[in-house]
Design a protein around this nucleic acid. Structure first.
Lengths: 219, 219
DNA sequence: AACAATTAAACAACTGTTTAATTTAAACAC
DNA sequence: GTGTTTAAATTAAACAGTTGTTTAATTGTT
């Protein structure tokens, strides 16, 4: 049984059949939990229920498996954002929808983001992070334009470090996620669904509040 | 030439001579750059200029080397904080000194924090994170008390998610640090000293502004 | 028949740790 | 200051286990 050729096509996009996606998702979880180096292809194979040779056969190597995951996971969020901006209402009101979208998105891709975060800074890791960098650049430009427009409408304060807004939003989320064990204990929540609930309610609310406060703060 | 016994003493505190510290610092940098699993004891030995057997001889194992690093690095910051609180001035004014201290401290220990962040969530990694957890708990209590007092003086708003203030402060810093390569490019700064300067000035200023805004924001 | 999919086995390289031997340095008796 | 003892420091080599990848053979599908 075969569906697609197991090689990179000319445009560099790999066709993904169900089995390949299953392998990617298994690898994503293991990479996020144990790190790239901490995960073996035997672990991935076993958990995905395939033979170890299939990973080389499908993806070429462990490194290329990670690259395939990055391309599969990280897509732009320009269009989603456009519909928020075109909605009526003040810029301040739009922030709520905007933050909500960002947190949902980042939460959905949290594992891949974690993997990238830790492998990105390693200069000896010869992995192609182009997709990730383009994604970040696009996100940054969207935020920068949004804030600029809000400032022109005099809804937002001047003297805001626009470049550090994304670190504030995503950083807050990720610091929570990376220290999940700690905050689980602190907040006295136990299971995964309660964490999900906290993220999409209290944490999202806190980030909204923080960003709205920052954008309207006058010293 | 020998200085101290290479074993754990009764109270669990290892005496550290200069050579041990040199090994710890070498390991810290490599662990932070390449991850715990991505770093081999041969790399550490070579970079530290010692024989590979010395690591087992001094620390017992690679895991115990990391544990020794944690104990060496992560100390409480209660006393430093106390002097800030006892200074005169409003609570709002104290925030500046407080944030500055936190960023300086976290920046100094950034590598160990990065290592911990990544290894902490791995349940199969049998490493003792007690020192780290106590450190976090203490920091949290300090912040919680500080905010409570500021609220009692009516300087800070009510309805603040106190538990998410530390994630906001540290998260912003770490998201910047983890994506150093990206922001280096975005901010058009090249060398390490310019990054240092940005952290202690623009980034610290941004975090101060964000937290002050949050603590005084009325919806 | 043609070729993709899948497999178990083998591969050489690398892993953390231990060994057993040697070197170094402090402690001691004089 | 001697020479001797004692134990720590340091070393190269070996250890057994694991790593990612490849092979060559087999199975499955069209």
């Amino acid at each position: 049984m075969f569906n697609f050729v197991p090689v990179l096509l000319q445009d560099g996009v790999m066709k993904l059949n169900e089995k390949k996606i299953q392998i990617l998702l298994t690898a994503e979880k293991l990479f996020a939990d144990n790190g790239f180096d901490g995960t073996t292809i035997r672990q991935i194979s076993k958990k995905a229920g395939i033979n170890i040779a299939m990973i080389s056969y499908y993806f070429g190597s462990k490194k290329k498996l990670l690259e395939a995951l990055l391309i599969y996971r990280i897509s732009d969020f320009g269009s989603e954002f456009d519909s928020i901006v075109s909605d009526k209402g003040t810029y301040l009101e739009k922030i709520d929808a905007f933050i909500e979208m960002m947190v949902k998105r980042i939460h959905q891709n949290r594992r891949t983001h974690k993997i990238v975060s830790f492998e990105y800074s390693n200069p000896f890791r010869e992995i192609n992070f182009e997709a990730y960098e383009n994604y970040k650049k696009e996100n940054f430009n969207i935020v920068a334009n949004f804030v600029k427009n809000g400032q022109e409408q005099s809804e937002f304060s001047k003297n805001i470090n626009v470049q550090m807004i994304i670190p504030t939003i995503l950083g807050t989320y990720f610091h929570f996620y990376y220290n999940k064990n700690f905050y689980q204990n602190l907040l006295d929540i136990s299971n995964e669904s309660e964490i999900e609930h906290y993220v999409h309610n209290q944490l999202t609310q806190h980030i909204k509040q923080t960003i709205k406060a920052l954008l309207t703060y006058e010293e």
